[in-house]
Design a protein around this nucleic acid. Structure first.
Lengths: 363, 363
DNA sequence: CGGTGTCATGACATCGATGTCATAAGAGGT
DNA sequence: ACCTCTTATGACATCGATGTCATGACACCG
């Protein structure tokens, strides 16, 4: 590969002059500039990032740790998608700032993180973004003392800057939309218990009910997310059974994510219950492959992953530029409610008890 | 950041000796080695990749160009997923070889590719992987003379090494499975006309029919992929109409991808046609979010993206190691047929004409 | 005991770009 | 005509790691 010396020789000038042409940091006569440009062209010269980094001790690199790539398999099951969208959001911001994103993958193993950070350190990254696959507390302490870091989709105890989704607000807004359509009996098939998102969203759900003066009925709330494993369909079936078995069945069902909503559609149809005519269904995530392909299209709450990634990248760049003291609290990023066809006003006088709930021939 | 000189001073040895400890390329006495290790530890020393690259002119970097990140939005619509899985496969192989993958994103704009390649050149990448979002001929000539390259999911005229999916063989195997179940009237809702995959898969479909002595009926083949845009559902509806309108309706439907199969499920159900009892349905891609969540689970052909990425990375590493002459022909990677519940033997004497096809009240 | 290796170590130059300082050639003011 | 100032350029050192060569200390052999 041609060097600045080759270019200099070819153009009959000194290396330093070539450098000046490259960086436009000092006046160079037009004639010389053209000669140098011609030489660079002729030799196909491209400056060496390594040499620049060495001299300036600024790498222009931002490291990002994720499982997005190795989780790609599970993107099929939607689990890996969030990370990817976060990476996308970060990428857009970073590239606009003229830095380069170095993406490293955990391969799903947390114990590889120190290795990845070390590689980052070798490359002298200026900052690190750590992306989690779903909203959760982070138990590990990231190595890499002195390197500014921002956590995305997770948070820790030590006050590392973090960007997380506004789960409470999202479910609140979505539930409010459901209530505004006229529903009063609203069931909720939540994500797994213990998950951060579950806690926060149930809180948002209750807040919306409370504000509307609707009493919270624990019998209408059930965790049914088994991450797509085989027992899940049965679990949902049983939950729906319970819901529709009472005298006052729900007229709307909130689902912990769009995949659950998809299963609910199919089970309801199998029982001859029409969506949305007899029961409204809403999801969460706005996983468009589902929300737009299902029929009727799914009303759902957007999980603003891309925006979170962008926000995190901006926060990191600010940290780098100004040594800004980052906010002590995690930054919550909210998403929109996506209104589609699966949520309509409840049928007047509808009881929900229209089919024989014991006829499980489709299971 | 501590340097090798700092470590040397701290340990009371010369920098060169520290270097020897780092690289184990010359004998160092145990005592010295320990002293150096202790010094490195105390100072938190991490060697500078830039300095190494400069000295050795080997960057240990492999560049990868993709739209996977920026297409993440469309992963929701399944379009971006392939690239991501390819990246995953490549990543695994590259990391095993102790090199680092530098992932660059086109942001969906082909005209940015030269920029990305230039950035790669600045980083002195040793090779480049170019990943396309779906199987297609590549019209652009990649810049970066002299850098070994491997194309994935695409191919060009200039004999650049390429890795592509075996679309013909995949559809052949899938269709053969359908035929082996006893189906003779098999419809095919293909992807968009003109696409590489469409041509190859229709060829595979016809080969399977031909071998089984089934006449190819053009009336049963229709392109219905509109990439999830609004008119698509109508288009599929019309196609199904046509299929089931004749006296000899199909007993099985092949779909160009899993998303189409998902729409087909929903439309058939809306018409009261049971899957798979009355009509078997198969997809293509094995997009597990769909194929495993649909009920019944979808029989489909795996599109081996991850394997393609891995294969491409191996090919590139071989090229680097041995200056191997790459195969002149594109490498075709085959996938498996995934047998699930949506494909069963046809009902004896079934005509397919069991519902009023004009009752389109669900559209 | 001197010759010949081997082991352990260090001095120095080098990779490619750029910051610092020096210098030569004009431009402009008095 | 002389001094100062700007413009345009180059020489040289430097960033951090490592390849090359040199050297001192032993060990072993005859």
């Amino acid at each position: 590969m041609a060097t600045i010396y080759d270019v200099a020789k070819h153009a009959g000038v000194s290396p330093k002059t070539v450098s000046r042409v490259l960086n436009k940091d000092a006046p160079v006569s037009a004639k010389t500039r053209e000669a140098v440009a011609a030489a660079m062209d002729a030799l196909g010269y491209v400056p060496s990032h390594a040499a620049r980094t060495m001299k300036s001790s600024k790498s222009g690199l931002i490291g990002l740790i994720t499982g997005a790539i190795s989780n790609a398999d599970e993107i099929s099951t939607a689990a890996g998608l969030p990370e990817l969208l976060i990476v996308q959001g970060a990428q857009k911001v970073i590239e606009r700032s003229n830095k380069t994103l170095l993406i490293s993958d955990t391969g799903g193993r947390l114990d590889r993180v120190p290795d990845l950070v070390r590689t980052f350190q070798e490359h002298r990254v200026e900052g690190i973004l750590y992306v989690a696959d779903f909203h959760k507390p982070l138990d590990l302490t990231l190595p890499g003392r002195g390197i500014p870091k921002v956590l995305v989709n997770c948070y820790d105890q030590s006050g590392t800057p973090a960007v997380v989704p506004d789960d409470e607000g999202g479910q609140y807004a979505l539930t409010k939309s459901v209530i505004e359509k006229g529903h009063r009996r609203i069931a909720y098939l939540t994500l797994a218990k213990g998950q951060e998102a579950t806690k926060l969203r149930v809180a948002g759900f209750r807040r919306a009910l409370g504000e509307a003066g609707i009493e919270f009925d624990p019998a209408l709330v059930q965790a049914t997310d088994l991450f797509g494993t085989p027992g899940e369909r049965q679990l949902i079936w049983d939950a729906l059974d319970k819901f529709f078995d009472g005298d006052d069945p729900p007229t709307a069902i909130c689902c912990g994510n769009d995949r659950l909503a998809m299963a609910v559609y199919s089970i309801l149809r199998g029982r001859g219950i029409e969506v949305p005519q007899e029961v409204s269904v809403v999801g969460y995530d706005d996983h468009r492959l589902i929300s737009e392909t299902l029929y009727p299209p799914l009303t759902t709450a957007e999980l603003p992953y891309s925006a979170m990634g962008a926000r995190a990248a901006e926060t990191l760049l600010d940290l780098l530029a100004e040594g800004d003291t980052a906010p002590a609290e995690a930054i919550r990023v909210g998403g929109q409610v996506k209104h589609r066809g699966s949520l309509v006003a409840p049928r007047p006088g509808h009881t929900g008890n229209i089919v024989d709930l014991k006829g499980r021939n489709e299971i």
